[in-house]
């Protein structure tokens, strides 16, 4: 286990360096100039040059990279050009909101995916299975931002059931110690705050989670179908167990492995999806921050955010690999 973690840590470091280089070069060669976004019209050429020198943008890309990387390894990602704040503290203050949203969306996706896959197998070769398959096909074809817009129109405008923007009602008077609002409200037992977080969060979480739920349903149902003809399933039938117990107790764990693989891969799309979803729901996470950073050509902030996303992906892949061992006893001690 120790050797495994060490190898993964080295791989992660190499990945991060690669990501940093690519992003650093890319944001500097694409059109758009951060200085042009900050100066007032009619500024003199000398002022522009002075600003350029102030931010170090007059040096070569290679020189700029080494300056940036030298600071980055000490944990200093510079100052945001547009927001004039420290990049690290800015990201750390917004990251919890995104992590909670992504976690909620994933939890919803897994719950819905497992329930519908199991129901589909329970009704295998009967009419309800066709309804589940057909409905699932439709959900598979609709991307997250369409769900977001549909929810806003449906539950925000047509039947105003829930707030459609923000993370929490600003009128709520509650001093959070951390920015993990949901976790903190849960631990401190604040029911009213939790309810408001739910009211704000269910639409973006559901919009983000539905496409993943449909993918999990399809993959898991397929592998459950295969598992149901295995000999150990026949043995469970011959022992006198009912169908639900057999699907959940015997087949599910073995069938979960392909579904886990696809969930791990699709999770990166889900995190990428937070960028649009957070913008649509004005949700104060790093996705929303990323869009503003790109619009303002805020180079230090963009770089910091990309590295953050890369760290999240690496962490998720690592957790998926560790979960394989949990599901498949043959992979343990090995």
């Amino acid at each position: 286990m120790g050797a495994f973690l060490l190898r993964r840590a080295v791989e992660a470091a190499l990945t991060l360096i690669g990501v940093a280089i690519v992003v650093f070069v890319l944001v500097r060669v694409v059109p758009g100039d951060p200085i042009a976004m900050m100066i007032s019209p009619g500024a003199s050429e000398a002022d522009i040059q002075a600003l350029r020198a102030l931010y170090g943008l007059d040096k070569s890309i290679l020189a700029q990279f080494f300056i940036w990387a030298g600071h980055a390894v000490t944990g200093d990602f510079g100052t945001s050009i547009s927001l004039r704040q420290n990049v690290v503290s800015l990201i750390l203050s917004r990251l919890p909101a995104t992590l909670e949203l992504a976690a909620a969306a994933t939890a919803l996706a897994v719950a819905l995916g497992v329930v519908f896959a199991v129901l589909g197998i329970m009704w295998s070769r009967r009419f309800p299975e066709k309804i589940i398959d057909g409905f699932n096909g439709v959900v598979l074809a609709i991307p997250d931002f369409i769900w977001a817009l549909a929810f806003i129109l449906l539950f925000g405008v047509l039947f105003p059931l829930a707030p459609i923007s923000g993370r929490i009602d600003p009128r709520i008077e509650f001093e959070f110690v951390t920015n993990f609002y949901f976790v903190e409200a849960l631990l401190r037992g604040e029911i009213a705050v939790l309810a408001d977080l739910f009211a704000h969060g269910w639409m973006p979480a559901l919009a983000l989670g539905l496409p993943l739920a449909a993918i999990i349903t399809r993959v898991l149902k397929g592998s459950l179908d295969q598992a149901m003809v295995e000999d150990y399933v026949t043995m469970a039938r011959v022992k006198g167990f009912g169908r639900l117990r057999i699907v959940v107790g015997e087949a599910l764990q073995n069938a979960a492995i392909p579904a886990l693989t696809i969930t791990g891969v699709q999770f990166t799309f889900l995190v990428g999806g937070t960028v649009l979803i957070e913008k649509i729901f004005s949700y104060p996470g790093i996705g929303n921050l990323a869009i503003d950073a790109v619009i303002n050509r805020d180079l230090p902030l963009i770089q910091g955010l990309i590295v953050t996303f890369a760290v999240i992906f690496i962490f998720v892949n690592l957790s998926v690999d560790m979960m394989y061992a949990l599901l498949n006893p043959r992979l343990r001690h090995g």
């Binding site: 000999d231 150990y232 026949t234 043995m235 469970a236 011959v238 073995n254 599901l327």
Partner: peptide
Amino acid sequence: LGRDISLIPQDPLTALNPA
């Protein structure tokens, strides 16, 4: 099944749940 009648299967390698 399992109570009054039980089965000894053909292939012990696949008849036990690996998980």
